[in-house]
Amino acid sequence: RFRLSPAARNILEKHSLDASQGTATGPRGIFTKEDALKLVQLKQTGK
């Protein structure tokens, strides 16, 4: 289970993504908004 920032949680839910597909870069291993946006971008480019 990942620790998600509220913004990251919202983005992941909106795009039906799972945090385990990305890398948490925030302090103390928190999955940040920026991490979520990177994951969305990867999904949109098909990689």
Rank of each mutant, 00 (worst) to 15 (best):
R1K: 08
R1M: 04
R1T: 00
R1N: 07
R1G: 15
F2L: 05
F2Q: 02
F2T: 08
F2D: 09
F2W: 00
F2E: 08
R3N: 15
R3C: 13
R3A: 04
R3K: 11
L4M: 13
S5R: 00
S5F: 00
P6Y: 11
P6S: 14
P6M: 10
A7I: 09
A7R: 10
A7V: 09
A7E: 15
R9T: 10
R9M: 09
R9I: 11
N10K: 13
N10L: 14
N10I: 12
I11D: 11
I11W: 01
I11Q: 05
I11R: 06
I11S: 05
L12W: 01
E13D: 13
K14M: 11
K14R: 08
H15C: 02
H15I: 00
H15M: 12
S16F: 06
S16T: 12
S16W: 01
S16V: 02
L17W: 03
L17N: 01
L17I: 10
L17V: 07
L17Y: 01
D18F: 00
D18I: 07
D18R: 01
A19S: 09
A19P: 15
A19K: 03
A19L: 06
A19H: 08
A19Q: 07
S20A: 13
S20L: 07
S20K: 12
S20R: 09
S20M: 11
S20P: 09
Q21A: 13
G22Q: 04
G22E: 05
G22S: 02
G22D: 03
T23D: 13
T23K: 13
T23M: 10
A24M: 04
T25K: 06
T25M: 05
T25N: 05
G26Q: 04
G26W: 00
P27G: 04
P27A: 12
P27R: 07
P27D: 13
R28L: 11
R28S: 11
G29Y: 00
G29K: 04
G29F: 00
I30G: 09
I30F: 11
I30E: 15
I30W: 10
I30H: 07
F31Q: 05
F31K: 06
F31A: 05
F31R: 05
T32D: 02
K33D: 09
K33W: 01
K33N: 05
K33E: 14
K33C: 06
E34M: 03
E34Y: 05
D35V: 00
D35R: 01
D35L: 01
D35H: 01
A36N: 05
A36I: 00
A36E: 08
L37V: 11
L37Q: 03
L37E: 15
L37C: 06
K38Q: 11
K38I: 03
K38H: 11
K38D: 03
K38W: 00
L39I: 08
L39T: 04
L39M: 12
L39Y: 00
L39W: 01
V40T: 01
V40K: 12
V40W: 03
Q41K: 15
Q41R: 15
Q41L: 07
L42S: 09
L42M: 12
L42F: 03
K43T: 14
K43A: 13
K43Q: 13
K43L: 03
Q44R: 11
T45V: 11
T45G: 15
T45A: 15
G46M: 13
G46A: 08
K47S: 13
